[in-house]
Amino acid sequence: MEINGKKYKAVVIGGSAGSFSVVSKILSKMSPDFPLPVIVCMHRLKHVRSGLVEGLNLKSKIKVVEPCDKDKIEGNKVYLAPSNYHLFIEFDNTFSLSTESVHNHSRPAIDYTFSSAAYTYRDKVLGIILTGANKDGANGLKDIHDKNGTTIVQDPASCDIDTMTKAALNLFEPDYILTPEKIAEYLNQLAS
C-alpha cells in the first residue's frame, strides 16, 4: 500500500467528544476495498460495552469489529478499541489489551494505541486525530510523527471541541490539517 512513494501497514484514528459522527462520516466515504487495517480508539463509556460497533457498522462500508486480545490484525477491517480496555499493537501483528490504570482519564487511551502503532509500524503508519475534549492522543500522534509516520489533524475549525487537535498542534507540525471530508478523500487515495 503506497502513496506519494510511501508504504503503509495501518491507519490509526483517535477521537473523543463528538468523534463518533466524524468517524462514522469518514468510514461511510471510504472505499469498501480499503486494503489496510483501520484501528480506531475512541473515548467511550466504560460500562456500555455494546452499541458503538453496531452504530458504526450501519454506515461503514468496511466491517467494524471489536478485537479480542491476541487477535491477528488484518487488512480491510476496522478495529474499534473495546470499552474499559487499553488497546496496543504488538510486533507479531496482533492486538494486546490491558486493564492498566486510566490515562488522561481514559481507558482506552488514544496515546497508548498511537504510541504502540508508532513503535511497531514506525514510518509505515498513518495517524489521524479528531475532535475531542482532552489532550489524550496528542503525545501518541507526536510519537508517530517522530518515527516519520504520516500525521493528520482534523481541522480545529471543523471540530465540535478542539482541545485534542490543538494539543497535537501545540506539540508538532503535522503533515496535514484536514476536514473530515478531506480525510476520507486522502484515505481513498491509499486504496486507488
Partner: peptide, 24 residues
C-alpha cells in the same frame, strides 16, 4: 492540502521510550 506551521514545544517522552530498551 493544507499544512500547518506550528511552534516547536518540547514534549513528554512516551511510555515506549521510557527505558530506551530495544526488542533485543
Amino acid at each position: 492540502m493544507a499544512r500547518f506551521i506550528s511552534k516547536t514545544v518540547p514534549t513528554l517522552s512516551s511510555f515506549e521510550r521510557g527505558l530506551g530498551l530495544g526488542l533485543k
